[in-house]
Structures are given as structure tokens and as C-alpha cells.
């Protein structure tokens, strides 16, 4: 079997006596969508932050395509093929949608030591950006400032910025958060279109989305991994029921 795109080995993080990440080990295979579910406060966002490099774990290893990235800065990890969609949309607000995606493409495909030529005249970057925007359905909004986009459009824009970089792994922190039914359908459609093409680690509360997208689920409770399996298996898993429905689960 080929090497997993992401391998987390025995990751631990404590804030004093509080175990936010408790010996977590999991992996994400090529083209797999691996969803992490769990009640609030289970440590899901903290886990993503450690994978992205924004937080330092106390012990354990994080491997991207077999290479240890535990000591690398967030920027270095991004250069190795890690892309991240934040829990609250993080865009360059005054830039247009096209400029945002073009900047993302610039990070991977162009030198930024260009001081004279207008970035908007760079045909390669603009084409890549337009293609990515079309994939997420934002082609018509290319010239709109990111600050003026609707919530769902902002989410899609973030996904486009990640896609244009052709990442190895996409980290999504609650992509459906704050999205209405229409927006959720649209975002799910976009992610389904990428299924099998890019490996994804997805945190999500919306169960319908999780079951529609995920190849595998992992349940995080109190910082520790309580169960892992395919959606079909997890649907009937007593731990999952207990985590979401409490001890009164039938």
C-alpha cells in the first residue's frame, strides 16, 4: 500500500493539566476524504492547528508524504503542499476574488521578486486563477472585492485559493459553518467534484455533509480518538452515539 499523504503519530498537546490532544494517531490516504467528527471542545480545531503549524505539539510526529514536517513553519508546510481553509474565512479583504487566487498561485508558481510588471498582466497566474474560480463556481465574481462576497462565496473563494496551489493535502475546518442550505449544497457539490483527486482532512458538524463526502470518519472525544471507520460502520458505532446523544442513546 502506498504511503499515506498525512500521517499523525502519537500527537500530544496539554495546556497544563488539560489534555487537548491525547495520543492521537491517524492517517489520510491519497485521494481520501477523512472526516473528523466530535462534540464541541473535543480538540478538533486544535488538531488542525497543529497539523498546519500554527500550534506546536508537546510530543508526536506529523508526516506529509513520509517527510516529517513537525518542525516546519506554516509557510514551509504550505510550500510542501499543505493547504488550509480556516474556520472563519480568511481572505485578503480589499483584493478582488481574482487577485486573491492569483496571489495563491503566485506563492507556488511564480517568483515574487518582480517589481515592475503589473501582477494583473501575468497571464499564467491569471489563467490559473480563472480556472480555479470556475471550478468553485465563482467565475462571474472574479472582479468583486473579497470583502463584498457573501459568506458562502467567501468559503468557495478560500477553496479556490487552496486548489490553485495543487496541494497534496487540503485541511478544511468546518467548511459548512454558517452556510445556509443553498450554500451548503453548492459547497458540497464543489467538494464532491474534487473527491478522489485531492486528499482532504475535514472537520465538520453537519452529518449530512459528512456522510455524503467522507470515505472514513474519526471520532474525537476529549482530545482522544474514540473510533475510526467507514461511514457505514460509524453510523452504528456505540461510541459515536454516546458522543452525540449522551448516555441516553438507545
Amino acid at each position: 500500500m502506498s504511503e499515506p499523504v498525512l500521517a499523525i503519530r502519537d500527537l500530544c498537546k496539554n495546556y497544563g493539566a488539560l489534555r487537548v490532544t491525547d495520543h492521537v494517531s491517524l492517517d489520510v490516504h491519497e485521494g481520501e476524504i477523512h472526516a473528523i467528527i466530535g462534540p464541541n471542545g473535543a480538540g478538533k480545531t486544535t488538531l488542525i492547528a497543529q497539523i498546519a503549524g500554527a500550534l506546536h505539539p508537546d510530543s508526536g510526529a506529523i508526516l506529509l508524504s513520509g517527510k516529517d514536517i513537525s518542525r516546519l513553519s506554516p509557510a514551509a508546510r504550505a510550500q510542501r503542499g499543505l493547504a488550509r481553509v480556516f474556520q472563519i474565512s480568511s481572505l485578503i479583504a480589499p483584493f478582488t476574488a481574482l487577485e486573491n487566487v492569483a496571489l495563491a498561485a503566485q506563492a507556488r508558481f511564480a517568483s515574487s521578486l518582480s517589481f515592475w510588471r503589473a501582477a494583473s498582466a501575468d497571464r499564467d497566474l491569471v489563467t490559473r486563477a480563472q480556472t480555479a474560480l470556475a471550478t468553485v463556481g465563482l467565475a462571474a465574481r472574479a472582479q468583486t472585492r473579497a470583502a463584498s462576497l457573501s459568506h458562502g462565496e467567501a468559503r468557495s473563494l478560500e477553496i479556490a485559493m487552496c486548489l490553485v496551489q495543487q496541494p497534496r493535502l487540503l485541511l478544511l475546518d468546518e467548511p459548512m459553518a454558517g452556510a445556509g442550505p443553498e450554500e451548503t449544497r453548492e459547497l458540497t457539490r464543489v467538494l464532491l467534484g474534487l473527491k478522489g483527486k485531492i486528499a482532504m482532512l475535514l472537520i465538520e458538524h453537519d452529518m449530512a455533509t459528512v456522510f455524503a463526502l467522507a470515505d472514513r470518519l474519526s471520532l474525537l472525544v476529549g482530545g482522544a480518538l474514540a473510533a475510526t471507520g467507514t461511514p457505514a460502520m460509524m453510523r452504528h458505532d456505540p461510541e459515536v452515539r454516546k458522543a452525540y446523544l449522551g448516555d441516553f442513546a438507545p
Binding site: P74, S90, L91
Partner: peptide
């Protein structure tokens, strides 16, 4: 971009 949104800037690889 480095000034407007540093978190996104570094997350992109800069």
C-alpha cells in the same frame, strides 16, 4: 497581503 492578513499570507506559503 503580508500586512492585510498575515495568517492567510503564511498559510499560502509566503
Amino acid at each position: 497581503a503580508s500586512h492585510l492578513n498575515e495568517a492567510r499570507f503564511t498559510a499560502l506559503g509566503f
